[in-house]
Design a protein around this nucleic acid. Structure first.
Lengths: 113, 113
DNA sequence: CTGCATCCCGTCTGATACTG
DNA sequence: CAGTATCAGACGGGATGCAG
């Protein structure tokens, strides 16, 4: 478990500490269900992320038991990431959030960016 | 709309930008459904928040159209906060997250903090 | 290919004090 | 009561270079 978590004042607080952050939601979502992605694939898919942040975020997700990291000892090395059962339980939530986000983005039109 | 939003790479990214942050989830949750809370009430309920952060977060939620701010011109002043329809649409998801959080907290036991 | 080490900077967050 | 002002520190995040 991620030691950096602060004492949570309630379950909502706790949950946001665990999946908050700039990239965690997207990474979990891209890893949806039985999708297995390699480090390099994630780097391409999660637009704008730097290697450092990708590694750091994946480590936190791993510590938190949401993501499984599998190292294949080959040359060149291959590292695959997938969701744990606990991580998969978050998918419905993120999916609903995504649907909400899409709706909101349409309502905005071009006036925002 | 909050001008600080960055161009979103996808709807998940977008949604997390809008409800991410240290206190937004909790504030929305405490403002559930037809709950109307005053500034001082929120300050007590959202444990650990400072006046500055509470004001700042409420302003962002207001700019983002998730929270409604109603000023009653009285002495002493009274300002009430409630969810907009858009904000209410987020409640099921936050509740889902809360349930997940509660489950996880139980699994952890006392080993974490 | 998959990372880690380092340096650096801007933003976010907090403590404290003050005001209409 | 409902904030604002100011200061300072912590932290997130990016750029670059190196390693197994």
């Amino acid at each position: 478990m991620n030691k950096k978590l602060n004492p949570a004042s309630c379950a909502v607080d706790y949950a946001f500490q665990r999946i908050g952050g700039k990239y965690k939601g997207r990474i979990i979502w891209y890893l949806n269900d039985n999708n297995i992605l390699r480090y390099g694939e994630l780097r391409r898919i999660v637009q704008g992320i730097t290697p450092k942040m990708l590694t750091q975020t994946l480590r936190e997700l791993e510590e938190d038991g949401l993501v499984l990291r599998t190292v294949h000892h080959e040359v060149p090395p291959r590292v695959e990431y997938s969701l744990t059962e606990t991580g998969k339980e978050l998918l419905p939530f993120i999916n609903h959030l995504r649907v909400w986000g899409e709706k909101q983005m349409k309502l905005e039109g071009d006036t925002c960016y």
